[in-house]
Nucleic acid binder design. Structure first.
Lengths: 206, 206
DNA sequence: GCCATAACTCTACGGGTGGGGAATTCCTCA
DNA sequence: TGAGGAATTCCCCACCCGTAGAGTTATGGC
């Protein structure tokens, strides 16, 4: 019917720089964020990310150097994350537990932050390298923003214990999608998990 | 000095069946268990497993059909795991919390079961497929062995909440190796986490 | 208007991936 | 003793991977 061959092996895109502000860099970051979230660091290939962004893979190299650079850039873009939790470590200590869980779960529900958290978990459980980056980027912030001075002290241990519970819920609810946990409402979870966090943060003997 | 060329490009191994009982199948299962543990389902390649087992990759295909079959065989080999936890759900309910955490952490310390748990977590956080297998194999057992009748009932929810905390500690301590948690002793962890489990299992409002 | 530089593409290389076919050797059972 | 099958190897295929180089087009400062 038309003149174009319908068996075109591949549609060549125009070469060279685009006119105006193309926003390509951000498109790549968005695609990377989503794919790292869906498949983890190893599972998300540079090529797949480029395709998702509608761009040649070599552009990623141009902008970010290599895959590591891209991952780092993807994470660094939204490092507000720890701040939003740490701020609740201050406020009224008596109600911190519920407030923290509430804020944390809300972050997981937001379409902007969720992929980043997902990527962090999926990557950290698989690649040692990703764990390193996680410690570098998040660790420092949590510590400074929550006013912890001694890295080996009791306060740090309390926060870490609370962290294990929050990590566990997130993995169960959002990654593994364990039925009973995934089925609970936001409010129910806060009600159940909040006291646990509270106990870790200011319980008696630790 | 010798007659053999020291630049032999690769040492060809003899083809054909070996004499006697070679135990190759088990060697493959062992190597697979360790590699799945270290790198997760996707990260552990059939070739790497074969090499670790000192065997040609095609043998894996011969014995297990494909990579999935190998993974399934690796996991199925040691499904005693859930039983060992579930049995503590019975016994004296007043002390269940500490006993469960204690038994659970001990499993993580044993060189036999640890790789399986590791492989489970590393794979489940990355591949949907692995999650399916996990539910099929473990889910049923946990439910039956802990005497849960209603899959959506309160009892199930309690066990699941406890599960999130245990999952969280394991990931933090053994996978991510979060410093404060990794540094705590077995006893300290039992003392801190035990009460949380206890509260989930028989706390007031759930 | 010119030119360095930034944005963008194509093609290619070396290597790893899971899977399958064919050949060889040994074991078991009639 | 002979036949069939199991265990084991090698080689091959088609595909995906991260990265690199070289070429093309627009932008922005002079």
């Amino acid at each position: 019917m038309a003149e174009q061959p319908n068996l075109a092996p591949r549609a060549k895109r125009p070469t060279g720089r685009r006119a105006g502000d193309s926003g390509t860099r951000d498109a790549i970051l968005d695609a990377a964020r989503d794919l790292f979230a869906a498949r983890g660091y190893d599972g998300a290939s540079v090529r797949a990310i480029a395709t998702a962004a509608g761009v040649d893979p070599a552009l990623i190299r141009h902008f970010f150097g290599d895959k590591d650079g891209l991952f780092a850039a993807t994470m660094a873009d939204r490092t507000v994350i720890p701040a939003r939790i740490a701020e609740h470590l201050q406020g009224d200590p008596a109600t911190a537990g519920n407030r923290i869980v509430d804020a944390y779960l809300r972050m997981w529900e937001e379409p902007e932050t969720r992929p980043v958290l997902m990527a962090l978990i999926r990557s950290a459980t698989t690649s040692e390298q990703a764990v390193g980056m996680l410690f570098d980027v998040l660790g420092g912030r949590i510590r400074e923003q929550s006013g912890i001075t001694d890295p080996d002290g009791e306060r740090m241990r309390r926060v870490a214990l609370a962290g294990t519970q929050m990590l566990g819920v997130a993995v169960a609810r959002y990654v593994i999608k364990l039925p009973p946990i995934a089925a609970m409402t936001h409010a129910e979870l806060v009600e159940q998990i909040g006291p646990t966090i509270q106990r870790y943060l200011d319980g008696e003997n630790i």
